[in-house]
Structure formats: structure tokens, C-alpha cells
Amino acid sequence: MVLLCLIAQHETYGYEIISQLNTTGGKIFGNAKEGTIYPILYRLEAAGYIQSRLASSTLNGGSKKYYNLTESGHLMLQELLVFWNDFVGCVNNFVASTKKNEV
């Protein structure tokens, strides 16, 4: 879901995804590694949630694979966000009731 959120923000490439994950979520998720992220990207692409295009990189002469969300990727993200909000709401209720009992 985090990867879909990142790709939904703007078209992005592998290195940028990993950098953003480490900058924003490194403390919680631990450092993201290519060996973990790329297989997930492959699976998301195979499932049709993301698509990629190759573009030549002017800086290093190589090419970059840019990822963006497909229509079904957007739908999946919406579903996951709804589930996530329900999940957080449910856990928060448990935490709130525990806090009341603790106080």
C-alpha cells in the first residue's frame, strides 16, 4: 500500500522510491533495500496495478524505468485506504478503551 501511495503521488523510479521510503518511513519500517522493493514492483506490475515506461537519462546516459499507477491500481489503492482507515479506527478504539481502564 505504501508503494502504491508513493507511485500515486507522481511518476517515479526505483531509486527515488527507495530514497523516499528511507527518508519518510525509515524509522518505522527500517531501511528499504532494492532486493526487497524491486520484487514488489515486479509483482505490482504483473498484477496490473502499476505500469512502467523506459526513458533515457540525460545525466548518466543510461535509462530509467518510470512507474505510474494504472486505473486498477488507483481502485486497489482506494480499497486499501478504506481498509486501512477501518483498521486504524478499530485499533484506536481498543487503545482508547485500554487507556480508560488504565487511568
Partner: peptide
Amino acid sequence: RDLNEIFDS
């Protein structure tokens, strides 16, 4: 291909 992109990036 991806590995070369990783090193280049």
C-alpha cells in the same frame, strides 16, 4: 537492466 539503473542513479 534494473541493477545498472540502481548503480547509475
